[in-house]
Amino acid sequence: MSEQGFTQHTGIAAPLDQANVDTDQIIPKQFLTGVTRIGYGKHLFHDWRYLDLKEQEPNPDFSLNKPEHKGASILLARENFGCGSSREHAPWALADFGFKAVIATSFADIFYGNCINNQLVPVALTSEQMDALFDAVKADAAITITVDLPAQTVSFGDVSFSFDIAPHHKTNLIKGLDAIGQTLELADAIDAFEAKQPSWL
């Protein structure tokens, strides 16, 4: 787990104007055979991004391949982003590709938690706000978007939207805390809990 914190990020966005983008699409199963957390970015959105299995022919129609979105560090999507499997390879691939934040209408639960644990900031906005973001990027792909975590805002041009995030998620992202290290400090409470457990467990 990364221990670098996230406060604010400004970058250009790649629009993925689709609902229900599942983790099988984000990183298909044939790339899950690794035993490390690195190197998944090149396979991100494999089926959509490449016309061939060997990843030699980029699909020119896919958003991430368009020259105007090159270098995007913010991904825009719609409802229920990251649904499906619990594979953490999905946020690993997004982060490895260079994304720092995903802004979508809503997220699947496990994926959302996995993002928090990997310093990839998941921002949920309303569908009207997402429309405005998609429109802005469509009008000018070079428009920069700023995600400010302490302020809980997404801003671009002269527009600013605020978003909700649970306080503990926010703290973990900002401080880049070692979650396991924190819990290990509660060893006494865990010991006490275990001491009270019934014999059959």
Partner: peptide, 18 residues
């Protein structure tokens, strides 16, 4: 419930989850 790999590590180390 299903968990991500960082949480698998958390459970292995602490037998708990937040």
């Amino acid at each position: 419930f299903g968990i991500g790999t960082s949480q698998v590590e958390h459970v292995l180390a602490t037998q708990t989850l937040k």
